[in-house]
Write a protein that binds this DNA or RNA. Structure first.
Length: 888
RNA sequence: GGGCGCAUAGCUCAGCGGUAGAGCGCCUGCCUUACAAGCAGGAUGUCACUGGUUCGAUCCCAGUUGUGCCCACCA
């Protein structure tokens, strides 16, 4: 029977809501292989042109909002982005289909240090520095850079299929967002939550700026712990030995500290000793911070170059002696002046060694050293005046919002990480000595006045007034992102409609940097959490679970895989690996497998179209359907419910898995195969199956669409004639279930599989027709004889039929004429093996059922189940023994 | 130094009190007119180790070993 004759469906009078008149897709419309490149770009542009992703603040529909974690303007798409974007896109696409006013808001972060470094590097290649240009020209240059090279990632997002609302794209340095920054700064300043203080901060001598604690990355570095003898033998106080890994700071020592209870040094407390290489004497102070058990129990104290020493200095009123400049060059007078800190370190140790003051060296001494997260330079603790945010009250509110359930963290186990942070947060250094960023809105007057200026206020004018030269930490503006992007501080329709956002999808690695700060600002500014749910994702790793890094050489450009296998394949693979909060390994073979799945869906739909599958008209009455139709519809509705459940739980791996198995193992491998017999026979049953097959594919494509938007769009529009699956409705569980049909088909599957196994064991060619006599009377298989014959390539038992093999399957008997001797040994082997398994099962279940304790204490349904298993094992054994006997 | 997590098939991971699962890989046979990016069949696990709780433990508890991550002011 030709496909053309089967494709004609004309008797339906009712159109489905999506249908655009009589629909006449033909298999010719679809090539035999899915080629992503042919459709992806075209479809994306169509979606954008039609405005599907543009949200309407005036809509009556309930809102669903996700703001994108703004990628750095310097960034390009990596697998981590592709991963998170896939999840966010799937969430918003589904909600859009469900009838929500879905907004996924895109944008970028100006990424202060990163961007400034990039442009400085570019200048460097021209032999110039930012100082050569001057501040204004430099910032101008950064803007030009941003226009020219920045935002590469936005184009890449289109490749991925991100359904973002481009009309609402934002940038943290936009006029509007800058106004939000200034407004918040002013408010916090007025509330006493922002203050200026001179403290030890983390200083990057290369970037020449302060950075916050979390921007410091600690590494185990090789160092040298040297023990230095301070003081003079002849002196009254004598000598003490201190240990240090940073000998160069000794030039700035202003004390030696010992523990107050340390008997060894009690006599020294209050005395002064000579500081080597200088003409100074320094006091010995008692401070309980000192651990008497470490080293000699004596600590050199350098209040201007070490945070602990700074605290000790404060407690003992020690002078702060700065001996290095902002580039880490020694400024103290003497032979070391002008040396870089590392040169100075060896020079000073050498000089002290010459004086016999270096007692003992431990080398290598591995210890934890802080590095700038942006450039890797060793951090220099540095005394300086900076702006700070007083975080305690903000962090408390941020913690409470999660504690009292207003914000849920997924998976819940990750909450501890969040609490650890917000409950122990130190004040936040927000000023940066950079030029690219939001300038601190504070003016200093000639008389020492300090004025914080709001966005609608004029800065003080006149002689001697100048603005603070520093800019704000990038995370200050990104912390405002969930509301600044919606127009705050204005009470915009967007803000009214779309705040608070629904879910924040981001990596667990960014909880401290970003999540906690958005929570703090959201609670403080909006008095409402910025999102209802925080869905934390893991990191993308390579196929062996190893971190992707340039040094390992295992970094993959997602665009390469999208080129080779399509965006859908990449997305499906990422979604399939997305178990909440866990890292996601990905390998090229897996992407290939996802591509194969897309192609399978493609071809199954082609088959359906060739055979006249349709979505037109209402579904036939179940009473009119064959068990196969009722079975697949029952399963379909179960899958709809299952997928919905997984979405609510952000279980992307589970829902992807469930859909793949349903589509491939059930719809394609069984329903479609069974439908071939129905179509071949024609008549009303074929019509019913055409409609059911259309329904099943329609719904399955909708269910798959959020994760694999391109192939589903192409197929769905072809199948249904609908405008776009993007704006089609999300399937709802109709409640239709048919347990009898499910059991019946399970029996068919079992029987068919059993005979197939026999055929394979007998070495029969898959296509080889075998005469067979089927005795199916009184079994669930009865209605499926034709399908069973078709699937198993069995032909009617004709003249001279000889039942050389007789298989009991599912209560029925299938007799085959193998035209000669069957392979007795192969069959005996198989049966013996099955028999052993059945006997083992019988022994196990039997043992349980004779166990009094089990019978007394196990719940009834468990006991019942074991009884069932025992009966099944007994039946299997009887059947297998009978077969073995027949073999002789 | 603290805290958290993980150890299940060759690889990557689900499962987490009642018969061990998936994807990829592997073996066998097939171009069966939707698909070889496919079809059919198959093999594979002392569920890290040692105890404990339980009628019953991969699953709960304790300890051991291995491994990963986060935090911390180890001079």
């Amino acid at each position: 029977m030709g496909a053309r004759t089967l494709a004609v469906v004309t008797d339906n009078t009712q159109q489905s809501p999506e249908a655009n008149g009589p629909h006449s897709a033909t298999p010719a419309d679809l090539p035999t292989q899915y080629t992503p490149a042919d459709v992806e770009g075209k479809l994306y542009e169509r979606w954008v042109e039609r405005g599907y992703f543009e949200a309407d603040a005036k809509s009556e529909k309930p809102p669903y909002t996700i703001v994108i974690p703004p990628p750095n303007v310097t960034g390009s798409l990596h697998l981590g982005h592709a991963f998170q974007h896939t999840l966010m896109d799937a969430l918003t696409r589904r909600k859009r289909m469900q009838g929500y006013e879905a907004l996924w808001l895109p944008g970028m972060d100006h990424a202060g240090i990163a961007t400034q470094n990039k442009v400085e590097q570019q200048l460097g290649e021209e032999g110039r520095s930012r100082q050569d240009l001057g501040r204004e020209a430099f910032v101008e240059r950064v803007w030009r850079w941003k226009e020219e090279y920045g935002g590469k990632i936005l184009g890449q997002m289109r490749r991925l299929g991100d359904g973002v609302d481009w009309s609402r794209e934002r940038f943290t340095m936009d006029e509007g967002l800058s106004r939000a920054v200034q407004t918040v700064f002013k408010k916090m300043y007025d509330d006493g939550l922002i203050y200026r203080a001179e403290r030890i901060i983390n200083w990057c001598p290369r970037c020449l700026t302060a950075i916050s604690d979390i921007e410091v990355e600690y590494q185990e570095d090789d160092g040298e712990l040297v023990q230095l003898k301070y003081g003079e033998d002849g002196d009254g106080a004598g000598t003490v030995v201190v240990a240090t890994t940073r000998a160069e700071t000794m030039l700035g020592d202003t004390a030696v500290a010992v523990h107050p209870d340390d008997e060894r040094y009690r006599h020294l407390i209050g005395k002064r000793i000579k500081l080597p290489l200088t003409d100074r004497t320094i006091p010995v102070v008692a401070d309980s911070h000192v651990d008497p058990g470490f080293g000699t129990g004596c600590v050199k104290v350098t209040p201007a170059h070490d945070p602990n020493d700074f605290e000790i200095g404060r407690r003992h009123d020690l002078p702060l002696l700065t001996v290095m400049d902002e580039r880490g060059v020694i400024t103290a007078h003497g032979p070391f002046q002008g040396l870089d800190r590392f040169e100075a370190r060896s020079a000073i140790v050498a000089a002290l060694r010459e004086q016999g003051r270096v007692l003992e060296e431990k080398r290598p001494y591995v210890h934890s050293v802080g590095h700038c997260s942006r450039c890797g330079t060793t951090i220099e603790p540095r005394l300086s005046m900076q702006w700070w945010v007083k975080v305690t009250p903000l962090a408390e509110a941020a913690g409470d919002a999660v504690r009292d359930g207003r914000v849920k963290i997924h998976p819940a186990e990750m909450s501890s990480r969040y609490f650890d942070w917000v409950d122990n947060m130190h004040d936040w250094t927000i000023s940066r000595q950079l030029w690219w960023g939001h300038r601190i809105p504070v003016w200093y007057g000639p008389e020492g006045e300090v004025v914080c200026v709001g966005p609608d206020e004029e800065p003080p004018a006149g002689e001697g007034w100048r603005q603070d030269p520093d800019v704000l930490d990038t995370w200050f503006s990104s912390g405002l992102w969930p509301f600044s992007t919606l127009g705050w501080p204005d009470r915009t329709p967007d803000l009214e409609k779309f705040y608070a956002t629904d879910v924040l999808v981001t990596g667990y690695d960014i909880i401290f940097f970003w999540v906690a700060r958005m929570m703090m600002f959201g609670m403080y500014v909006m008095e409402e959490p910025p999102f209802h749910t925080i869905a934390l994702t893991g990191l993308v790793r390579d196929e062996h679970g190893k971190k992707m890094s340039k040094s390992f050489g295992n970094v993959v450009d997602p665009l390469d895989w999208m080129d080779a296998y399509g965006s859908d394949a990449l997305r499906f693979t990422l979604a399939s690996g997305a178990n909440p909060g866990t890292d996601v390994p990905i390998g090229e073979d897996w992407v290939k497998a996802s591509r194969n799945f897309a192609n399978k869906v493609w071809n199954a739909t082609r088959f359906a179209l060739m055979n006249g599958a349709t979505v037109a008209g209402p579904l036939p009455d179940p009473a009119e359907m064959a068990a196969t139709d009722r079975w697949i519809l029952s399963r379909l509705n179960e899958v709809v419910a299952e997928v919905d459940g997984y979405y609510e739980d952000y279980q992307f791996a589970k829902l992807s898995d469930a859909l793949r198995h349903f589509a491939w193992d059930e719809v394609f491998d069984w329903y479609v195969e069974l439908s071939k017999t129905t179509f071949a026979k024609g008549g009303r049953p074929a019509e019913v199956t055409r409609r059911v097959l259309g329904e099943v594919l329609d719904v399955t494509l909708r269910l798959l669409h959020p994760v694999v938007p391109f192939v589903t769009e192409e197929l769905w529009t072809t199948l249904t004639g609908g405008e776009s699956v993007v704006v089609a409705g999300w399937p709802a569980d109709s409640g239709f279930r048919d347990a009898d049909a499910e059991r019946e088909i399970a029996t068919v599957q079992q029987a068919v599989t059993e005979v197939r196994r026999f055929r394979a064991d007998q070495g029969l060619q898959p296509g080889q027709k075998v005469p067979a006599d089927l005795d199916l009377a009184g079994t669930a298989l009865m209605a499926h004889e034709d399908a069973i014959r078709q699937l198993l390539r069995l032909q009617p038992a004709g003249e001279g039929f000889q039942a050389t093999a007789s298989l009991p399957v599912a209560g029925a008997t299938v007799s085959l004429d193998l035209s000669g001797a069957i392979d007795v040994e192969a069959e005996r082997k198989r049966l013996t093996k099955d028999l052993a398994a059945a006997e083992k099962e019988l022994a196990q279940t039997g043992a349980k059922l004779t166990n009094e304790a089990f019978l007394a204490k196990a719940p009834e349904h468990v006991v019942e189940k074991i009884r069932g298993r025992k009966a099944a094992a007994e039946a299997d054994i009887a059947r297998l023994q009978q077969q073995l006997e027949r073999l002789g």
